[in-house]
């Protein structure tokens, strides 16, 4: 039978853990709300940009020649922009992202051949894939909890430069897509070459837009911004995923700690009772012996 003081010490230690996990949970919950909010606010811009791009691609001519960012080449090198959290304590999120990325890096699932390089965004993914000796084209850390376009633009600009200068023939974006608070799924999104969204059937058929200065020039202005936006949105969504994964993981941890406290308290009370009983027995036994 464990002695009572030892049990009491364990209860106190588990209580402290529960306090910490509870605090992390509350912080993550409030950050999650804000991150979700920001992801929603970026949506109207993205939708409009997609519709403009759809309009443009239907008039700008052959995609392979209209703009360098649309041009499909033979794939000699693929680079993966991997967005992960900087910090752990978010359940299986990071492990899932790493496994998902590992399948692309190692396996033929990517549907391509050639070399793989990476642009890790966030400390966790970078730390992990460094061990496998993968070439990093750049690496980003500590974008903050609420990154703006100004923070994510350097990421997309490196990808665009590497692509236009022919160092890389394909760019994939891997991040945790936010399904809902309890579910975040790693996804792979090809961002370069740009696949223009299909133009709205009704719109492209009926309205003839005037393009100024010209469709090609508007397209040249729009495409880099579109890539910026894809990366920005992925970073926002990854932030919402991170915070909600952390919130759920910490809530489970707090619940588990509270269960453990209840169990330990039961054991502690039993042990205490037994101790008292045996002390009483000792005393009454002693009294009987004295009476003799």
């Amino acid at each position: 039978m464990a002695n009572t003081r030892e049990i009491r010490r364990r209860i106190r230690s588990v209580e402290n853990t529960a306090k910490i996990t509870n605090a992390i949970q509350l912080v993550a919950a409030s950050k999650m709300r804000r991150a979700q909010d920001r992801a929603l606010q970026a949506r109207p811009y993205a939708e409009k940009m997609q519709s403009v791009l759809g309009q443009l691609s239907s008039v700008a001519g052959d995609p392979d020649t209209a703009h360098p960012l649309l041009e499909r080449r033979e794939i000699n090198e693929t680079t993966v922009i991997l967005i992960t959290p900087d910090r752990g304590l978010c359940g299986g999120l990071i492990a899932n992202l790493e496994r998902h990325t590992g399948e692309i890096v190692l396996g033929p699932e990517a549907g391509g051949t050639g070399d793989i390089s990476m642009i890790p965004v966030g400390r966790k993914g970078g730390d992990y894939f460094q061990r496998f000796g993968i070439n990093f084209r750049a690496s980003f850390q500590e974008l903050g909890d609420y990154p703006g376009l100004a923070e994510t633009q350097p990421i997309s600009r490196i990808a665009i430069d590497d692509y236009t200068e022919g160092r890389v023939d394909r760019v994939l974006l891997v991040y945790a897509s936010f399904i809902n608070t309890v579910s975040q799924v790693p996804v792979t999104v090809p961002i370069l070459p740009v696949e223009p969204p299909a133009g709205d059937e009704d719109a492209s058929g009926e309205t003839q837009y005037i393009f100024e200065p010209s469709p090609q020039e508007v397209l040249a202005d729009l495409l880099p911004r579109y890539v910026d936006l894809l990366v920005y949105q992925a970073v926002l969504e990854a932030a919402a995923s991170e915070q909600s994964a952390r919130m759920v993981a910490m809530r489970n941890a707090t619940d588990a700690a509270n269960d453990m406290i209840a169990d330990l308290t039961l054991v502690y009370n039993k042990a205490r009772q037994e101790q008292i009983t045996s002390e009483l027995l000792d005393i009454t036994g002693g009294v009987e012996a004295l009476k003799g």
Binding site: V52, Q55, L56, T207, Q208, Y209, I210, F211, E212, P213, E217, V218, D221, L222
Partner: peptide, 19 residues
């Protein structure tokens, strides 16, 4: 401020996309 110079848009303008 259009990229080709300032442009004014009044109601019933033709469909236009400009940088």
């Amino acid at each position: 401020p259009g990229s080709l110079g300032e442009l004014g848009i009044l109601p019933n303008h033709a469909p236009l996309i400009t940088s």
